[in-house]
Write a protein that binds this DNA or RNA. Structure first.
Lengths: 238, 238
DNA sequence: ACAGAGAATATGTCCGGACAAATGACCTCC
DNA sequence: GGAGGTCATTTGTCCGGACATATTCTCTGT
């Protein structure tokens, strides 16, 4: 295959992408309809649709039946989480407000799936900062005997772990954290208002008390572009 | 739209996905060809292809012209990087061998793009561990006056930062690190042997000496499923 | 001026077809 | 046994068409 034999749908996708990235097409602008693209470029509707599908996949455009295709808003990372010490985990939980959606006792399968034992309460919700798009889709498991009720969670302006420490005779003395890149599944993507399959940073934190018991567990999905971790390690402090 | 009117291509995609996730179809198994799916399910080739495209997008199958469609290997994370202190950054660079691909002086635009000033040498390559699929696509910028040549880099069994400390009168005394989820671009995905648009963990590290000068900068893309960061914060050490 | 109905528009889904390009199996020859 | 060529197979690309569905616009009645 010579380098000239680039598929036509890719050529068109690239042209449109250049128009978007160069600013010639701005967020909110309407793109040509599929039929217009066919006429303008002398291609079939299939080829036009395939080109648009690539742009959609890249998050550059949004398409709706009956409404047309528009250039998507480009989300700059709104939230950089400094994290290299204990305090900043707590700070994150304060700054990124947890908007509770549902809560219920966790099933034994759910508990087993996250490698825990015992009874836990489960909270599902979104982390937000003001009216911005959601920063994260978060699920939290709290040890049942320490777990706050829904009204308490909704009223909290600190993290659940701080509340537990304050209201029970326990101290979080170790947090383990795990981060990896994942692709968002359909329902996750919908809740976060991004395209399904979008990349996200998955963060899992396990909070232990002094006896090693897991009193809290959280799992968050931060879509790409909305969240970065930043931290600094100084040799003098290692 | 009733819940019965799920598109046929999605119904087929779901059936095939169930076959894969249940183990009825195992990694390496050949799937039915497009024409076979048409006959078996009484659907058009377009519908069959659209179903397969969804599975491909999810990373469940791999398709090759002339060869057919197979169930993809599911990549468990092969490398969990403990990181919460200075030593483990160094350890990562040792364990995840940097396989140099190209090196050259960095252009002034490249240097400006990463927020640095001065002259730097640029190294492009893959991080690997034994014969596993690449862990990361990495680009490194070293301050030109301290930069090792290609032969040195290829022979190194430590990190470039340790080599610089050992062979020049400098000490790395601060590393800043930034992590976020990104979607891999086409060329990046090809080098990492994953599907384009796949999620990846993007890690950027900036190494400073005592005077605040940036002596090394690295940017790595770890595809989803191949790499997780794990670390632990103890209250007693904060 | 506003609400509702209907029509037009635009994308989503599905069909069938044809040709190109990459792969792998098979066969022949050395 | 291995190399090379050929052919069949399979996916990739592109075409055209039709109908369904969601959205938007326009017109009419109150």
């Amino acid at each position: 295959m010579s380098e000239q034999s680039i598929p036509r749908y890719r050529i068109l996708a690239k042209q449109l992408k250049n128009d978007i990235l160069s600013g010639r097409l701005k967020p909110g602008d309407q793109l040509h309809t599929e039929l217009e693209l066919c006429e303008i470029h002398d291609i079939s509707r299939h080829t036009a649709r395939e080109a648009l599908r690539l742009l959609s996949e890249d998050g550059l455009i949004a398409r709706r039946r009956g409404a047309g295709t528009i250039v998507a808003e480009i989300n700059a990372p709104a939230f950089a989480q400094p994290i290299g010490d204990f305090e900043s985990i707590l700070k994150y939980a304060r700054d990124a407000h947890f908007e509770l959606d549902t809560n219920r006792p966790a099933t034994s399968k759910e508990i087993a799936d996250i490698g825990l034992k015992g009874s836990y309460y489960r909270y599902d919700g979104l982390r937000r900062q003001a009216a911005s798009p959601p920063l994260a889709l978060t699920v939290i498991f709290a040890l049942a005997k320490l777990a706050p009720d829904a009204a308490t969670v909704k009223a909290l302006d600190t993290s659940i772990s701080e509340w537990i420490e304050r209201t029970h005779s326990v101290v979080v003395n170790k947090v383990t954290q795990r981060m990896e890149a994942v692709a968002l599944r359909n329902t996750e993507a919908k809740k976060l208002k991004v395209e399904k399959g979008s990349p996200a940073l998955a963060t899992t934190r396990t909070y232990h008390d002094a006896s090693g018991r897991v009193i809290l567990y959280s799992h968050s999905l931060h879509p790409a572009g909305r969240f970065v971790y930043e931290f600094q390690l100084d040799r003098t402090r290692s």
